[in-house]
């Protein structure tokens, strides 16, 4: 499956839908998109992983880096719709403890918003 990113605005959040495999060849594109969004003030981000059929440690690193980046700007990152093989990688590395995996985008959109970002909505 070809790697692709789709970005839409919903309920004050930016939903980034990722399709394909997240590895050292593709993860830099996601990183660049998050940097672009954050630098233009979009710091409430949902990553919809429903189309991701593979993730490795480089992909995980970009997700963690994205979380750190948006939180440093007063925002939040939420993950949604991880397939079982993707979910398992988050569980093995225990990243699921700091980044909950929501079953739906709607559930991710219900993530509590930091007070600073609430004023931007």
């Amino acid at each position: 499956m070809l790697f692709d990113l789709q970005v839409v605005e919903r309920d004050g959040w930016t939903v980034v839908s990722v399709t394909g495999e997240l590895d050292v060849a593709t993860a830099p594109r996601l990183r660049n998109e998050i940097v672009r969004l954050a630098s233009s003030g979009n710091t409430l981000v949902v990553l919809d992983l429903g189309g991701v059929d593979f993730i490795d440690s480089t992909g995980l690193g970009v997700v963690v880096g994205s979380l750190k980046r948006v939180r440093s700007l007063g925002g939040e990152l939420a993950l949604a719709r991880a397939e079982p093989q993707v979910r398992r990688v988050f569980e093995i590395t225990r990243l699921v403890d700091i980044l909950p995996l929501h079953d739906t985008v709607d559930a991710a959109l219900a993530t509590p918003v930091p007070p600073r970002a609430e004023g931007d909505r």
């Binding site: 440690s57 970009v62 963690v64 979380l67 750190k68 939180r71 225990r94 700091i98």
Partner: peptide, 16 residues
């Protein structure tokens, strides 16, 4: 570091 450690978010590499 463990997931709950404050430094965990600085750990973008080394999981391989």
């Amino acid at each position: 570091p463990d997931a709950e450690h404050p430094e965990r978010l600085n750990w973008e590499h080394g999981l391989g």
